[in-house]
Design a binder for these strands. Structure first.
Lengths: 228, 228
DNA sequence: GGATGGCCATGACATTTGTCCCAGGGCCTT
DNA sequence: AAGGCCCTGGGACAAATGTCATGGCCATCC
């Protein structure tokens, strides 16, 4: 069996996770990493762990654990995915700013939706990265946000401004969200506790505001813009 | 500025990419990595590069480049994502088996859809991993497929068998694929060059076979099973 | 106080969608 | 040759969907 050492090397590095122990160093940057895709999470954790002034104090795949674990481990920077099981990363970001203001939030997402960026900023995030760019960006961004700087993809910022704010009302969002994957009007109505007729009205107005032709196009457009 | 060395360390490792040069070592395993998400691709490349018997001879984010680059760089194992811009990873896998039979294909995907696994096996893939499990799996899997072993998530294999084969005909797949994100019957008809009446017939039969209530549910179900 | 705008609901209406018939042609297997 | 399956179309019909007008209730803002 050739190269088994390498595998162990990889597996061994996982020990960086866990309780934050008695870390005496001064300049160490403590990181929390929330990302649902296991392989991505593991890979990022290992990479960031290679930087000698970074320390991953928590890594998790569930949105609900973010605030508790952050309070427990007191990270300097929280790297949050948006689409997570349980609480959304955007939700958690807002709560985290509240609960632990000294912790900078860096949103790391697959989709550069304008509305996501907008909401991230409103939630008090210090940075917004898409998972496309090179990995090197990540370490750079982490150091930047610690200086108080904001880190945002320039092209995305422009798109967010040009796209304007979310035109949908709360109810329209509710109904549209419930309309994903082909739910019928009756389904939506019972899910949202509204009259079927009302549901159709909201759908109609959402379709109008998104300038689309049917509910599915509306859902798509709304998602595209990060309005859901 | 603290710890800049670390960043450079990360960036520097990228040099592993490129032409395969005059590598004298005997036991080196040459890898091709196709993955569209830049950060994931970079992270995996770096991690795998850390193993001393691995060498990444090509990394790319486009399905169309897979076969050409493989012919150029002659990897021992190709790690392919399924959802890629250009040619699908499954397509490319089949073509690669044809063009470079000595190269083992390892499918690496976000979604553990039963139909994907089935198609991957039919395309001659040697392994099928989902991006959830730990990163360590990856290195292990790579070494396994080189011994001729097949690497498949056991739970997924069971699901693939119980789900049965794809019940949809070619046309039904075409029409259903064209029906994503809310295209109207007329749209689909013109996209597939069929009569609107025919389109509605195919949609109806697809809905029947998937045991759903409308086209969107059918699309969802078909996607879920990897039938598209 | 009045205007505005979101929220909730109805009824009426045209259009779209989904279903069930039907029919012909092509291809493959028995 | 016969049967089966897929591909392609059409017509008719019921149901679902999208639109519009109208109404009342409640907030907030000027």
């Amino acid at each position: 069996m050739n190269g088994a050492k390498g595998v162990n090397g990889v597996a061994g590095a996982k020990g960086a996770e866990g309780v934050n122990g008695a870390e005496g160093a001064k300049g160490v940057i403590k990181l929390l990493l929330a990302e649902d895709q296991g392989m991505m999470r593991g890979a990022l954790a290992l990479l960031l762990g290679l930087e000698d002034d970074f320390e991953i104090v928590a890594q998790l795949g569930n949105g609900d654990e973010i605030v508790p674990r952050a309070l427990e481990t007191r990270p300097d920077v929280a790297l949050l995915d948006i689409e997570l099981p349980g609480r959304s990363g955007l939700d958690a970001a807002a709560a985290l700013r509240e609960a632990l203001p000294e912790c900078q939030v860096l949103i790391l997402t697959t989709f550069g939706r304008p509305g996501y960026l907008r909401r991230a900023m409103e939630a008090g995030a210090a940075g917004f990265l898409v998972k496309d760019g090179p990995v090197e960006e990540l370490a750079v961004a982490i150091r930047r946000v610690l200086t108080g700087e904001r880190v945002i993809d320039p092209g995305l910022a422009a798109a967010a401004l040009s796209a304007g704010p979310n035109p949908l009302t709360q109810r329209e969002r509710d109904v549209l969200s419930a309309a994903v994957d082909g739910a019928t009007v009756a389904d939506i109505a019972s899910k949202v506790h509204l009259s079927p007729a009302t549901v159709r009205n909201y759908l109609s107005s959402a379709i109008g505001k998104t300038q689309t032709r049917n509910r599915m196009e509306a859902v798509r457009a709304a998602r595209q813009n990060g309005w859901l």
